[in-house]
Amino acid sequence: MAAAAAAGAGPEMVRGQVFDVGPRYTNLSYIGEGAYGMVCSAYDNVNKVRVAIKKISPFEHQTYCQRTLREIKILLRFRHENIIGINDIIRAPTIEQMKDVYIVQDLMETDLYKLLKTQHLSNDHICYFLYQILRGLKYIHSANVLHRDLKPSNLLLNTTCDLKICDFGLARVADPDHDHTGFLTEYVATRWYRAPEIMLNSKGYTKSIDIWSVGCILAEMLSNRPIFPGKHYLDQLNHILGILGSPSQEDLNCIINLKARNYLLSLPHKNKVPWNRLFPNADSKALDLLDKMLTFNPHKRIEVEQALAHPYLEQYYDPSDEPIAEAPFKFDMELDDLPKEKLKELIFEETARFQPGYRS
Results as ranks from 00 to 15, higher is better:
5 A>G: 09
6 A>Y: 05
10 G>I: 11
13 M>K: 15
21 V>L: 13
40 C>D: 02
44 D>C: 13
45 N>E: 07
47 N>T: 13
48 K>W: 13
58 P>L: 15
58 P>D: 01
59 F>R: 15
61 H>W: 13
61 H>R: 12
64 Y>H: 15
65 C>L: 14
66 Q>A: 11
70 R>K: 05
73 K>E: 12
75 L>P: 13
75 L>F: 04
78 F>K: 04
82 N>R: 09
83 I>L: 09
85 G>P: 05
91 R>Y: 01
91 R>G: 02
92 A>L: 03
94 T>P: 13
97 Q>N: 01
101 V>I: 12
104 V>T: 02
105 Q>T: 15
108 M>Y: 10
117 K>Q: 13
119 Q>G: 11
121 L>P: 11
126 I>C: 05
126 I>V: 15
127 C>I: 15
131 Y>W: 05
138 K>V: 09
142 S>G: 03
143 A>M: 04
143 A>E: 07
143 A>H: 03
150 L>F: 07
152 P>A: 11
155 L>G: 01
157 L>E: 08
160 T>N: 10
171 A>R: 05
172 R>M: 09
172 R>Q: 12
174 A>K: 09
175 D>P: 07
175 D>H: 10
177 D>N: 11
178 H>M: 08
179 D>L: 05
182 G>A: 08
185 T>W: 12
193 Y>N: 15
194 R>V: 10
194 R>S: 15
196 P>H: 14
198 I>L: 10
198 I>W: 11
199 M>P: 06
200 L>A: 07
203 K>Y: 11
203 K>I: 15
204 G>I: 06
205 Y>C: 02
205 Y>V: 12
207 K>A: 09
208 S>G: 10
211 I>C: 11
212 W>P: 12
212 W>H: 10
219 A>V: 12
219 A>I: 06
222 L>K: 04
223 S>G: 11
224 N>F: 08
227 I>F: 15
233 Y>R: 10
241 L>S: 06
241 L>R: 00
251 D>N: 13
256 I>W: 09
259 K>A: 05
262 N>V: 03
262 N>A: 04
264 L>K: 08
269 H>D: 10
270 K>P: 02
274 P>S: 12
274 P>Y: 05
276 N>A: 12
279 F>N: 08
284 S>Y: 10
288 D>G: 00
289 L>V: 01
293 M>E: 04
297 N>H: 12
299 H>G: 11
305 E>G: 00
308 L>A: 02
308 L>Y: 02
309 A>S: 15
313 L>S: 03
316 Y>H: 01
318 D>V: 13
319 P>D: 08
321 D>T: 05
321 D>N: 13
325 A>L: 11
326 E>A: 14
327 A>W: 07
328 P>Q: 06
333 M>I: 15
336 D>I: 06
338 L>M: 14
341 E>M: 09
347 I>Y: 15
349 E>L: 03
349 E>S: 04
352 A>T: 13
354 F>G: 10
